[in-house]
């Protein structure tokens, strides 16, 4: 169980972060941008592999994460800039960046395999099976492989994201509620958008440790969506969202570890079930009251 301690701790802290950010993601309708960023991160992983930076050592882990974070932030800001040049059509911008980054990622994976895939004697160092496992881990996450180095990075990043979100909470609330007027009130819309997208990119990369490229964005959507089914008051939404996010992560880890299911998808599935339960409560509550 001690081997799993860093994984469990990292998952819970990332769940707190996801719960807090997901309220903004849902209310500002940025769920799809989270998907765009997470898929774009795949390109970042490809770059790290081509450069020979991988998570076999502590420095390698930090180096790989740094490259992926930098690439994801660049992708997020690129989405924002493209969206502005397409008259606010963010779906077009996400479509462009997501496709380009995924394509880049797969091409770089192949390049990395041909570049680093043979040892000094010309023998294959990594089989295609290893490569498939690596891609699978990146796509769907492998939280159980989290060691204390990865956990420390995840906890530090999540704490920084939570602090910056709290520090800017009034600005983010105004921006997410009524962005078109924020410039007139002295709050730069562009600066606020970019700040939030940088945080979102960092959060997506952290969530990828749990749920991978494909499911990371779900951890930044489901808790907020579920909380909004339960209340129409601002402060309780944030509290419920964090509670649902953490509950989903804890239950998902518990079920996944005991039943032998992959932890990341099980966490996302548990959060999805919690969302459905809140949806049922929302639907039935008025009938029960009357």
């Amino acid at each position: 169980m001690n081997d799993l301690a860093p994984a469990i701790l990292a998952a819970l802290v990332i769940a707190v972060m996801g719960g807090a950010l997901s309220v903004f993601v849902v209310l500002k309708r940025l769920a799809f941008i989270g998907q765009g960023i997470s898929h774009a991160a795949f390109g970042g992983v490809g770059i790290a592999l081509v450069l020979g930076v991988h998570g076999a050592t502590t420095m390698g882990t930090i180096g790989q994460l740094s490259i992926v974070v930098a690439f994801s932030i660049a992708a997020a800001l690129w989405i924002a800039a493209l969206s502005r040049s397409h008259h606010g059509r963010i779906d077009t911008a996400i479509g462009v960046v997501l496709s380009a980054s995924m394509a880049l990622g797969f091409v770089l994976f192949t390049l990395a395999e041909s570049k680093h895939g043979h040892d000094d004697h010309g023998h294959a160092a990594h089989g295609s099976e290893d490569q498939h496992h690596l891609i699978e881990d990146i796509l769907f996450g492998n939280i159980l492989s989290t060691d204390w180095t990865k956990a420390a990075i995840a906890i530090t990043a999540a704490a920084a994201i939570l602090f910056i979100t709290w520090f800017n909470h009034r600005r983010f609330i105004f921006w997410a509620f009524d962005e078109p007027v924020t410039d007139a009130y002295g709050l730069s819309s562009k600066r606020t958008t970019n700040t939030f997208l940088v945080l979102l990119a960092l959060a997506v990369v952290m969530a990828m440790q749990i749920a991978g490229v494909v499911l990371a964005a779900a951890m930044l959507v489901l808790p907020g969506a579920a909380a909004l089914n339960l209340t129409s008051k601002l402060r309780p939404v944030f509290i419920y969202s964090i509670v649902i996010g953490v509950a989903g992560a804890a239950l998902g880890m518990l079920i996944g570890i005991n039943a032998g299911y992959p932890a990341g998808p099980t966490i996302v599935l548990t959060q999805s079930i919690l969302y459905l339960i809140t949806l049922i409560i929302k639907t039935l509550a008025p009938r029960l009251r009357s």
């Binding site: 209310l27 609330i173 009524d178 007027v181």
Partner: peptide
């Protein structure tokens, strides 16, 4: 503003 574009679904 000319048009109120705020998101009225907000819990606020």
């Amino acid at each position: 503003p000319q048009r109120i574009e705020a998101d009225l679904d907000w819990p606020i």
